[in-house]
Each structure stands twice: as C-alpha cells, then as structure tokens.
C-alpha cells in the first residue's frame, strides 16, 4: 500500500550556500530498512523536481536510523541571493515527508 513518508519518519532541513540538506529519521528503528529501500537519491531528486536543479547525494547513518540527503543548486542561489520565500530550505524536510512510498501492511508496527 501507499503511505506518505511522514507516517514512518521525521525530518529537519537547512542550508549551506545553495545546498539544502534534509536529515530524514525513521520514527522507529525498525522502519529504517524501509527508508533505505524506498527513499533513494534518485527518487528524492525526482520528488523535488524543479525545486532542486543540482544533484542529490544520500548518506547513511544506520546508528541513528537516519539518512542525510544533500541537494545541490536547491535554493535559487542560496541564502541572501535567493528570491524564494523559503530561501534557506527550512521547509524542504516537510516537503520530503509528503513523498509517497510503498510498504507492505505487515511492515507497519503501529
């Protein structure tokens, strides 16, 4: 079945220049393998579409049951240059949490 990512994860995002990074954290450690399987750099790049012009790299932190997505050319020039309301990518975490993923019903423990 399809569920939004927010059902099994939480996130925080921020900026460094024109780079936006989203830390995506499994709400329970047992959901981490679902994140690894469903939330790849390619899918994240496709999800953000025109919001992210550069490449997306995924880093794994199995110790925190978390992934870190580093997205380049993601902020219309970044910080002071950007004309966007969200010039610092503060809401990119929330935007990623709207992404739909596929899970088997038995995979959800609550």
């Amino acid at each position: 079945m399809k569920i939004p990512l927010t059902r099994i994860a939480h996130a925080r995002s921020g900026d460094k220049g024109d780079i936006s990074n989203v830390g995506l954290i499994a709400s329970k450690p047992e959901y981490y393998p679902i994140l690894l399987r469903e939330v790849t750099a390619e899918r994240v790049k496709r999800h953000f579409g025109r919001l992210v012009e550069g490449s997306v790299t995924c880093y794994e932190l199995s110790n925190l049951a978390a992934l870190n997505f580093v997205m380049e050319k993601a902020l219309d020039g970044g910080g002071t240059i950007s004309l966007r309301t969200d010039a610092q990518g503060k809401t990119h975490g929330a935007a990623l949490l709207t992404m739909e993923i596929e899970v088997a019903s038995g995979e959800l423990t609550d």
């Binding site: 939480h10 996130a11 990074n21 830390g23 880093y59 932190l61 110790n63 870190n68």
Partner: peptide
Amino acid sequence: ATVKEQLLYEIGDPRSYVTPDVVADFTTI
C-alpha cells in the same frame, strides 16, 4: 528524536564533520 534532528542539521557527509580542531564522524555516535 530532538537530538537526532539537530545532529543532522546543516551537515554534509556525516563521516566528516570538519572543524578547525578535529574531523568528527557522526556515523559512530
């Protein structure tokens, strides 16, 4: 949960958090 969100805030490669005094690895914490 609150600590993890902040650990991941504004970082790049979590194996190399570079500071003037040391390079910290976030993947062993």
